[in-house]
């Protein structure tokens, strides 16, 4: 395998030692393969979190609705998606439910399963955020003459937003890691690529180690962005 050495960076002897290790060569010659896998994972996560946020907000408002039918549907939805494993949900949707309606490839199935799952968690985050806003805020808004949705829009949601940001970042990180489960339906994301490379090279420590490093870089980046957003919100 042809590898460009970086003697300035590592020093000639270290580089010679490393390239003598087969696992290192496997990882080093496949770095683009891992990065691409990471990008697929990131796409999967961003799409699922975005769809999950929209759907989650709707489900949260449904759950808090006075209309019993709406709140019951929301409760059942949340219970189902939080009470069963995502791995099983992925298989259920890809092999069982989605083929009835659409001819979806593994990536789309993965996005749908992850979105639906994430929405359940987001719904609880949003509901907790809204309910964490002091009761007096709603009373003050209503006593001025605002109706329920005006009070929600101008007084409650802007305050809930700040409360919801940290757990939402956490959900983003959790989902990024959980997308590894869609490897079971052969989506070419990071974990699946790790499986494939491992099965042809048997370099478990190097391959899975490299997979960990790519995941870690992504989760750390999201966490740092989250900290930045939180700091900015705090100073507002």
């Amino acid at each position: 395998m042809a590898i460009t050495p970086y003697p300035m960076l590592f020093g000639a002897t270290l580089w010679e030692k490393l390239t003598a290790i087969n696992g290192f060569n496997v990882v080093a010659s496949n770095w683009a393969y891992f990065i691409e896998g990471g990008l697929v994972t990131l796409q999967l996560t961003v799409l699922s979190v975005s769809a999950g946020m929209v759907l989650g907000l709707i489900i949260a408002l449904m759950k808090m609705s006075r209309w019993r039918l709406l709140s019951s549907v929301a409760v059942i939805y949340i219970d189902f998606f939080r009470g069963t494993p995502l791995l099983v949900q992925v298989m259920l949707f890809h092999f069982g439910i989605l083929p009835i309606f659409i001819d979806s490839g593994p990536f789309l199935s993965g996005v749908i399963a992850c979105s639906l799952n994430s929405a359940a968690y987001v719904a609880e985050i949003v509901r907790a955020g809204i309910q964490a806003v002091d009761r007096g805020q709603m009373e003050a808004a209503r006593s001025l003459g605002m109706n329920g949705s005006q009070a929600m829009r101008y007084v409650i949601l802007p305050q809930a937003y700040k409360i919801v940001v940290p757990p939402m970042i956490n959900e983003f990180v959790m989902l990024l890691k959980d997308t590894s489960l869609v490897s079971v339906i052969a989506v070419m994301e990071l974990t699946h690529r790790g499986k494939l490379l491992y099965s042809t090279t048997y370099e478990a420590a190097w391959v899975w180690g490299a997979v960990c490093v790519v995941y870690y870089i992504m989760t750390k980046t999201i966490a740092m962005m989250g900290d930045w957003i939180e700091r900015r919100l705090a100073t507002e």
């Binding site: 805020q137 003050a140 209503r142 305050q159």
Partner: peptide
């Protein structure tokens, strides 16, 4: 309610 002002013990100003 627009014609009835209310002042609360805990102020309930909008902090944002």
């Amino acid at each position: 309610r627009q014609q009835v002002g209310m002042v609360f013990q805990l102020f309930n100003l909008f902090p944002h």
